[in-house]
Amino acid sequence: MAFQCQRDCYMKEFVTSVVSCCPAELKHEVNGKKETLKGFNIKLQDTILFPEGGGQPDDHGLIGDVPVVRVTRQGADAVHFVGSPLEEGQEVQVKVDWERRFDHMQQHSGQHVITALAENMFGYKTTSWELGRQRSTIELDTPSVKPAQLQALEEAVNEKIRVHTPVTVQLLSIDDPAVEKVRSRGLPDDHAGPIRIIDIEGVDANMCCGTHVSNLSHLQVIKLLGTEKGKKNKTNLIFLTGNRVLKYAEKSYSTERSLVSLLKTGPDEHVEAVDKLQKSVKLLLKTNLSLLRDMAVVITQNFKNDPGEGTSSACTKKRVTMNS
């Protein structure tokens, strides 16, 4: 089945009813430490909170005034883990954390268009992807991506945004011949219901359970940050989409202003200024080491010439250092 969050990804509030409420435990990371939380698993008649899947994290939100900590999928059901029980059969209002949801929609749709164009333009297939908290990564089946290819890919994906490319959702039966024509990495073993296809007009048609924008213009912009060496001779392509690009620009500008104040130079001269500082520090360390060696030679020579005076001098210096 398709949940309400998949039928209308832009819905922020939804009224439904509680089907079941069972005591449960959840292993959860809090401040970097793994803890076991005691709570309840809630199943609803329907939901606008997306359960984790397809490389996309789950939604956060509220059922009534009860925070939802985690949402997972079990076959045709979405299971909501909460800290307080809810009465079976009661009508509840579900609210989604919209900032988190829209961010996930932007990153996921951004991944689809990057994946499609990377394959169409260069033959680089996507083998996996990760929607991270600060940046997202696409694993491409290629040992490397040339800088010129990266630039061409970034220009191509942003052109699709500029021309307001529509994104539509199709629901097909599993035996529909059209299913064989779409891109897919396979279905989960417990898949239930129709096949969901995300169709980016003229760009890509792909099986996907995630939430997406309805038009690529809602992505605002895509920035490819670069690549890293991946596993098994593959390349990880790092990217930001939409609001993450704005936050990245704001943070970069803040850092730039701080460096202007510290280095007393304009932004274009920061690299040169830091390079000069590093060379100056290296020279000072080298000079300091040379002076210490010269002092050691002098002290050793004085001790040989007058052992008593050398010992007294060393002890005096030690006392002065300790008292300081």
Rank of each mutant, 00 (worst) to 15 (best):
T227C: 09
V297N: 13
G310V: 03
A273V: 00
V66E: 14
L131W: 03
D58V: 00
L187R: 13
Q90E: 15
V82A: 08
D306I: 02
G132M: 06
S254M: 04
H108G: 03
V203K: 04
V66R: 12
I63C: 05
K181V: 00
S184F: 05
T316S: 14
D199Q: 04
D46I: 01
T16V: 04
I299H: 06
D103I: 00
T142G: 01
P147R: 11
K34H: 08
C21E: 05
G266K: 11
V179C: 11
K33Q: 13
L284Y: 12
V71N: 05
G75N: 09
Q220G: 02
K223I: 02
I197R: 08
T311C: 13
I238G: 01
F81L: 08
A192V: 14
A76N: 08
R162A: 15
S313Y: 12
A192W: 00
D204C: 03
P147V: 08
Q6I: 01
T255V: 04
S128Q: 08
L117K: 05
E13A: 10
T321C: 09
I174Q: 15
R183E: 08
I200H: 06
G186F: 10
A78M: 04
K229W: 00
D204Y: 02
V145I: 14
V66F: 03
G110T: 06
E155K: 12
C22M: 12
F14G: 03
A156M: 07
R319M: 13
E91Q: 14
Q149T: 01
Q90G: 01
V320M: 12
I138Y: 06
C9G: 14
K229N: 10
E309C: 02
A76H: 05
G308E: 15
T311P: 00
E154H: 06
Q4F: 06
R244V: 01
G75K: 06
D8W: 05
P166W: 13
Q111D: 07
G64C: 12
Q93D: 03
K317L: 15
H218V: 00
V271Q: 09
Q134S: 13
D189H: 08
T227F: 02
T316L: 13
G64Q: 12
N236V: 00
A249E: 14
A205N: 03
D176H: 09
A156Q: 11
V245W: 10
K12E: 15
E130Q: 11
H108F: 10
Q134I: 07
K317C: 10
D199P: 01
G242H: 06
T227Y: 04
P147Q: 11
V260F: 01
R135M: 08
G89E: 11
H212E: 07
P188S: 11
D294S: 15
K181R: 14
G89P: 05
T255Q: 09
G64R: 12
G64T: 10
K33S: 09
P51K: 09
T265W: 01
Q106A: 03
L263M: 07
V182I: 15
K95W: 07
V203Q: 05
F40C: 04
P85I: 04
C9I: 00
